[in-house]
């Protein structure tokens, strides 16, 4: 059986409610397409005998570009496709193409992003074309695009979040630590003070994030 049809059957088996559309090539050596829609999310898979599988964001802005991600086997393609369909993650091309795409998605020119970063347009151009960027630089660029960079060390049995210096997501200990005793500074009990300063709300959000991360790890 054609590998793309095999993948289609496997995905349909796992997600009976998924809407799957197959597009056949006009010629024997052409590209096959699979558009998989689950809920509001659509991911496009392509397959060609010489280049294997590709996964792309169907709604990408450009025209006539290759797949965002490439895979050799049905198993790897399926694993990635299921992961994308089950989350809000989008397929991502290599770093040297990703940053420009994210900037364009935000409707920013290189010059406008440069002004946000307080650097020159040439610097932004250089960063976007590099495949290897310092984490601190990457974090600044992502922050300037109104996002946050998160880095994980992933192992077979667990993953660990790496908290970057200057990250907006401080460890929970740092959020609740306060050198001034609450009763002396504000009066009243400590929880009231934490609520007033917003620290309790931040701690709750952080707790929720940790629980979500652990629930992902457990699956």
């Amino acid at each position: 059986m054609n590998p793309l049809k095999e993948l289609r059957d496997q995905i349909q088996g796992e997600f009976p409610s998924a809407k799957i559309e197959t597009t056949e090539p006009a010629h024997g050596d052409g590209i096959w397409w699979l558009d998989v829609t689950l809920g509001t999310k659509t991911v496009t898979v392509d397959w060609h005998s010489n280049r294997g599988f590709g996964i792309s964001d169907t709604l990408q802005v450009g025209y006539g570009e290759g797949p965002d991600e490439k895979f050799a086997s049905i198993a790897d393609t399926k694993r990635r496709l299921l992961s994308l369909l089950g989350s809000n993650e989008k397929p991502a091309p290599p770093l040297q193409y990703l940053l420009g795409r994210l900037r364009e998605r935000m409707g920013l020119t290189q010059g406008e992003l440069a002004r946000r970063l307080n650097v020159t347009q040439a610097t932004v151009s250089g960063i976007e074309r590099r495949g290897d960027v310092q984490l601190s630089t990457l974090a600044r660029v992502i922050n300037a695009l109104n996002g946050a960079l998160e880095v994980y060390a992933v192992f077979a049995d667990a993953r660990y979040k790496i908290v970057l210096p200057g990250s907006a997501h401080e460890p929970i200990d740092d959020i609740v630590r306060d050198p001034i005793p609450f009763s002396r500074r504000e009066g009243g009990n400590a929880f009231t003070c934490l609520e007033k300063t917003g620290q309790m709300s931040r701690a709750r959000d952080r707790q929720k994030r940790i629980l979500q991360e652990h629930s992902i790890m457990a699956t």
Binding site: A26, H27, G30, N50, R51, Y97
Partner: peptide, 18 residues
């Protein structure tokens, strides 16, 4: 042809015909 377009847009050819 190998799927590595590098950010450049390419026109269609026979490979893409449906």
């Amino acid at each position: 042809k190998a799927g590595n377009t590098g950010g450049r847009m390419y026109p269609p050819d026979e490979m893409f015909q449906i």
